[in-house]
Amino acid sequence: MTLIEVTTPAHTPSDGAVVLRESRVRTVLGHVVLGGLGLLCIVPVYWLYATSLRAPEDIYSLRPFPWPLSVASYAEARDTVDLPQLLLNTFVMAALIALGQLVTGLLAGYAFAAWRFRLQNTLYLVFVATWLVPFQVTMVPNYALLNQLGTLNTITGVVIPNLCSALAVIMLRSHLRSIPHELLEAARMDGRGAWSTLWTVVVPNLWPALAALGVLLFINAWNEYFWPALVLQRTNNVLQLALHSFIGPEGTQWGPLMATAGLACLPVLLLYLILQRRIVDGFVRSGLK
């Protein structure tokens, strides 16, 4: 008797080389296109900082690299406006608005996503509809209210009417809806109430979304010009209004203007760099799986 080992069925390798080549061409092409688009986005920002670092006599130079480097524009900006105070004011304003909108958005989104109540959809549509109301419609009533409250020409006056954002509610509701309902029910079974579940289960799982939205709201608030200009008529309390100081009837002082604008962009850029991964995660994923 002879013993013959049972063999496994024959395996025919596919022609992987052709597939690999095609995929490499596609990857290179994709990188070239995306690189071009990236360059298109970066150039204006680069030019802003390059101009701010040119010597005053080279301010209109088209040389791509500013040389010799000069901080004269920053010094002039510092002498013209109170940069540290403006940065602080703008940061406080943007942070308070972003935080307020995050908290109200979180509470409203939680209510809409985790609970069932009468007129839920109607109420949500009303929330969404407020997003469609143009700023000009609410501008005058808000201004009148601030006048009565005596908060005109203060940062508080800029912040209070912006504490709620329909965008925050919509986005957080959408993220919250993607959290498995069983997770909230498990917390209920484990003895948690709605409030405790929100802070111990929902928020920790919503960090990427909260970070992404927080940055978005912060940038929106940071870039806000019209409303602060209306409320802070007698003071240039925020950076965006201070930029106007360099635009006068005699012409525009490009150096200090670019230096101040560069400083205005810096916190947002830093914030994005630090939270980059969470922001991408927050926008790519709609929540938990």
């Binding site: 029910e185 799982n205 938990l288």
Partner: peptide
């Protein structure tokens, strides 16, 4: 106490 179909473990 309840054990859910998806286990509902807290991911964080």
């Amino acid at each position: 106490a309840m054990v859910f179909q998806s286990y509902a473990l807290y991911p964080h």
